[in-house]
């Protein structure tokens, strides 16, 4: 009572199944469109609202042009949360683990497809943001006369900021997936993720007067540290170098996925 196995090797079956799930979920297309639209629109708005009236105004044009990532990451985070909590909410998780009993492999497969889709849509969003900023920023005073040549990926730091922003979005997606797998409830998981991102980024400046604590909290905040990769000006003033910042966010992501894997293994589905 068996039939021949066409195609996929056993190793990649979990990835194949998770990809089929993701692409046939009705929300996926809207998520991709929302990420691109929110990111590009916010970047364009930031580029239009900021102004550089004189030479050497001290702004980081690249960072302004990529400001939409701070809004777009919320779309990515919520979509990644729903990728797993949607299954817990409907009970479909039991069908998933019945079909694929290796839970660690299921989590890894989800991570692969969610990160892959985020990298692809994030690339579009980031390139769209840079293009919009390149068109809008000169009208806000970011002109060659004021020391701002047009944004270009041929510029090393700009390329690093752009690629780093795409990577940042993918890491946020994975971080959210890990937290959501541990928490299992959509609203609670979205609250935890967005809280850790936005609140932890703002708290040091609002509630902590001590500069040493402010510095520490800035360094361990996944959003502040992770977005250091967008900086192209005054790098020496940053508490962390761009890639150190990425490392902090990577540590958060690794910790959340590890916790998720441990809990998945131990808990009844």
């Amino acid at each position: 009572m068996t039939r021949p196995v066409p195609g996929t090797g056993t190793r990649l079956r979990e990835v194949h199944a998770e990809w089929t799930k993701l692409r046939t979920a009705p929300g996926t297309l809207w998520t991709v469109l929302a990420l691109v639209a929110v990111t590009v629109a916010t970047s364009a708005a930031a580029s239009a609202l900021v102004s550089c009236p004189s030479s050497g105004c001290g702004h980081d044009a690249v960072r302004i042009g990529l400001a939409g990532v701070q809004a777009g990451q919320a779309v990515t985070a919520v979509a990644a949360v729903l990728a797993i909590t949607g299954e817990y909410g409907t009970g479909m998780i039991r069908a998933t683990f019945t079909a694929m009993p290796r839970r660690g492999a299921v989590l890894a497969a989800k991570a692969v497809v969610v990160a892959g889709l985020t990298l692809a849509s994030g690339t579009v969003a980031v390139l769209g943001s840079l293009l919009a900023a390149r068109l809008v920023l000169p009208h806000s005073g970011f002109t060659p006369e004021h020391g701002f040549p047009p944004l270009s990926l041929a510029d090393g730091p700009t390329l690093r900021a752009a690629a780093g922003s795409v990577l940042y979005l993918a890491l946020i997606a994975l971080f959210s997936l890990g937290v959501a797998t541990a928490v299992r409830d959509s609203a609670a998981a979205a609250g935890v993720v967005l809280g850790l991102l936005y609140a932890l980024a703002a708290v040091p400046f609002v509630m902590v007067p001590d500069p040493d604590w402010q510095l520490l909290l800035w360094r361990i905040s996944p959003m502040n540290a992770g977005l250091a990769v967008q900086s192209t000006a005054n790098l020496s003033a940053l508490p962390l170098t761009p890639w150190q910042g990425v490392a902090v966010l990577t540590a958060w992501t690794a910790a959340s996925l590890l916790l998720a894997a441990l809990l998945l293994r131990r808990r009844d589905a």
């Binding site: 195609g7 079956r13 194949h16 199944a17 998770e18 089929t20 046939t24 079909a99």
Partner: peptide
């Protein structure tokens, strides 16, 4: 059914 099939290497 399609994602279930893919999880078993079925078409």
């Amino acid at each position: 059914l399609l994602w279930l099939a893919h999880s078993q290497g079925l078409g």
